[in-house]
Design a protein around this nucleic acid. Structure first.
Lengths: 357, 357
DNA sequence: CTGAAAGCGCTAACAT
DNA sequence: ATGTTAGCGCTTTCAG
């Protein structure tokens, strides 16, 4: 069916070794024979069998991408970014979606990537020492997005700083009664963004000298519906916050819906800030913390390419910046509960005497 | 590094041939030796080299998935569905994102999937005869989602019927001045959903005896921003429609934003219906035509598995049903322009004497 | 039920 | 610059 290297060799009147060299652009082949071989190959429609060259060289020209979910906005974008640069460099993408605890266990047990990839890109999955060990046994370069792991290239945002910025934005507007919708801190998948964003929430609260309030610490499971449910719970509580910080835009969307359904208005009655700058955030006029998503995928992809193309560069850890995007869901609290005199800036923000949090 | 079959054979005191049979569950191996071999393999952590068995058998245990974009809601979901069933059946996924005209050309020219996959799943990419030919040369089973191609398993919705339902819903409510936001009919990628949905729009118009109106036929490029831009154009036209049919929810979201920005209200001033039942549709209370997305991916995946596991079933064409989801963005026109007496049903729909469109 | 041996199609030393 | 010759690690007749 498909032409073999031997046929090309015969047609060009050379040995298979020369064909191999010529077609891979290696030196030690005269230009004239190379041209002859290239012609013969084209005429025969020859393409080297990946399996054979893989067996001979050990290289697969494939990168494994391990992701919790393919069908979430964030991951889809990161994959797209990584795919673009890897494809450009001639690599294929082997996709593995871990999904849940079960799938994760299976992945690390069976290691379906073993012998199939030259490198692995990990998305947002913090590894247990055992898992890291298993992955290392593959003996290929590793990189990750949304992780801060030793021994592999990592590109991520500073979740703590981003969350702090969100909280400071609310505080600057004059808010003190701020609720948090996060969640997933106890999930088996163990993402770190949820944990860090929540920690920052508490840190800023304390810095503002506001007592902890368990009723203001909600679990929205990082989903739209979860965010809505959490907000609904919040709205039926004894005391209402003047602002809500949702640790992801999707949860903020859900919260938005719950607030509207309750007849309240954003930001008049409650301010709301999200995190991620989801593609829908602009549409819903949601104030949020933006992070570059596609770029993180690209950066991680490039790291792997660098590792793969010989230069034994030390795996680096890149932190990309987040940015506060002020839209229409945040404003100063109407029932002025600010504890210090505040003036309004041209941007409509109140400047209160914030402690240096 | 990794244990080889020979080592297992030696440890179990048999030949590599027997190891091969035993580990793959083939017959003609006594249970006692099989057990011994399995033990030896486990102790050595042996896993067969994919490259080697691939070279020997020609099978890759991998399915190629060719998709226009990874980072669109629809495709992400379909991939997730397909991945689940294929993974379950022991197949890996090789992802190829075609993206644009350029990437598409490269894909069909280089055929990076050649020799790397046992089957190919195509998403929403109608093929030119030449492309189909190239793909067929791979000599592997083909399946598609969102296509109606001869010679491969296809699973899709009836776009025409769905669009007709959307239009009839508006017509039943009493709307006659209905605009359409679609687009991409001229895109090089040549998806068919845009074309069919638009054709149905015109068909129902004519059936309602409403003259064609070029000003009501907008291009929203199947993106959120495009939808917004199209709606903005529409709002600045001489004559306003009482309803808008957006061929995708994402464009409907954009339209929604444009309408709100203009100070008009949905559905009081303008009714709006979308298509797809995007995850955000419920949040935005958008009336739409729902289609099963994950299920289409699963169905296509199963088709491939069937083809692959011997049963030489004829590639079938499955059409899954769509469903009208009535939410809050559609209502009877306020300025009653109905041409026939209408009564209101318990569901709030007006029943007008619709011609049988 | 098991083993010997011949590939699968390519690459990489080593010769020439 | 080119050819020879071993593998790479598994599968699969074909014998036994």
């Amino acid at each position: 069916m498909a032409a073999s290297q031997a046929e090309v060799a015969q047609r060009a009147g050379v040995s298979t070794a020369t064909v191999s060299r010529a077609l891979r652009g290696l030196p030690r082949v005269s230009e004239t024979t190379r041209a002859r071989i290239v012609d013969a190959a084209r005429e025969l429609g020859y393409v080297a069998s990946p399996a054979a060259s893989q067996l001979a060289t050990g290289r697969t020209r494939t990168v494994g991408v391990v992701v919790p979910f393919v069908d979430r906005w964030f991951f889809g974008r990161v994959i797209a970014g990584a795919e673009a640069v890897l494809r450009e460099a001639g690599f294929n993408l082997l996709l593995y979606s871990v999904g849940d605890e079960n799938g994760r266990a299976r992945f690390f047990e069976e290691m379906p990537l073993r012998g199939r990839v030259d490198a692995v890109l990990l998305l947002a999955l913090p590894l247990t020492p055992g898992e890291f060990e298993r992955l290392s046994e593959l003996g290929v370069p590793l990189a990750a997005v949304g992780l801060d792991e030793q021994g592999m290239g990592c590109v991520r945002i500073d979740d703590a700083a981003g969350a702090k910025t969100a909280m400071r934005h609310l505080a600057t507007l004059g808010h003190r009664d701020i609720a948090f919708i996060g969640g997933g801190t106890g999930t088996p998948l163990g993402f770190r963004a949820p944990v860090e964003r929540r920690a920052a929430y508490f840190a800023v609260r304390r810095c503002l000298a506001v007592d902890d309030d368990p009723e203001f610490d909600l679990d929205g499971g990082f989903t739209l519906n979860g965010g809505q449910a959490a907000m609904t719970r919040l709205l039926s509580a004894r005391r209402l916050p003047t602002a809500v910080f949702a640790a992801s835009d999707e949860m903020a969307f859900g919260a938005l819906r719950a607030i509207r359904r309750s007849g309240l208005h954003v930001p008049r009655d409650i301010s709301l800030i999200g995190f991620d700058d989801h593609e829908m955030a602009d549409l819903l006029d949601l104030t949020t913390i933006a992070q570059p998503v596609v770029q993180q995928g690209q950066a991680a992809g490039r790291m792997l390419i660098t590792q793969l193309t010989g230069e034994t560069t030390e795996p680096e850890a890149v932190v990309v910046p987040t940015e506060l995007i002020i839209r229409g869901t945040t404003a100063p609290p109407t029932t002025s509960t600010t504890r210090s005199p505040a003036v309004t800036t041209p941007h409509g923000e109140q400047v209160s005497n914030l402690p240096a949090c």
